[in-house]
Amino acid sequence: MTELKTQPRLAPARPKKPTSMLRNALWLFVSLVIVAAFWSVKIKWSALGDFPTQLLKYIGLMLVPPDWSKFGEAFSATILSVQMAWIGTVLGIVVSLPLSFLASRGLAPRVVNAPLRLIFAVIRAVPEVVIAILILSVTGLTPFTGALALAVGSVGTLGKWGYEAFEGVDAGPKEAVRSTGGSTLALIRWGVWPSAAPDVFSFWLYRFEINVRASAILGLIGAGGIGKMLQDNVQFRNWDAVGMLLIVVIAVTMGIDQLSGAVRNRLIHGYWRIPKAAR
């Protein structure tokens, strides 16, 4: 075996293993929080004993076989949720794009940045379904209410991601535009937008994917779509109809994810990539 013990000419002292008090304290804190949550939560963990058999039973009720006669209803409910998500995303983009420019440092005065950022943060804190409850009395119980709630929610996230992307753009192109005597508008159009655009487009797609999932919940308060069909059928324990809905939702959502992945790839890399079956 190789003998490594022959020392080199002049070995400096070996360093001691450093310890970080702050890091250890943080880990201790996080572990304590987790232990406390497990210890204090009102959950009968023994219920987990029946879980596997119960789960199998319900999977059987839902999927063996699903209620194929409900396919049409499940499909139109899912499509309605997708439509809500689309309108919500489009309105969200239209409102958030100018606002995120105004919220970016360097593109608008600080007095404009700060309140906008606060508004984005507040919106992000409130779940879409609560926003829907808030605007319900103004818009009535229609899918449009759901779309508006998703639009408001989208403004919160798209606004934030937008100004982060705009502020993250390399200083180089910005300086170049400024040095040619360009206005702030020229700076946005030629110094910021070209670099940030691919990211911003992919945020839009990502938010659409989120909205497709979030729209399901809005049916619970009467906005229609997946949530409504879910509620109607769970109430009367029509599990085979829920199973049908589950299958349609999974198929449509996966289809949308694949499509949006392909579009994102086209926008970022400049060419279409045929998505593999199980990417």
């Binding site: 490594l4 020392q7 080199p8 070995a11 400096p12 002292a13 070996r14 360093p15």
Partner: peptide
């Protein structure tokens, strides 16, 4: 130590 970088 053999590659003289032990202090890192």
């Amino acid at each position: 130590e053999r590659v003289e970088i032990v202090q890192k």
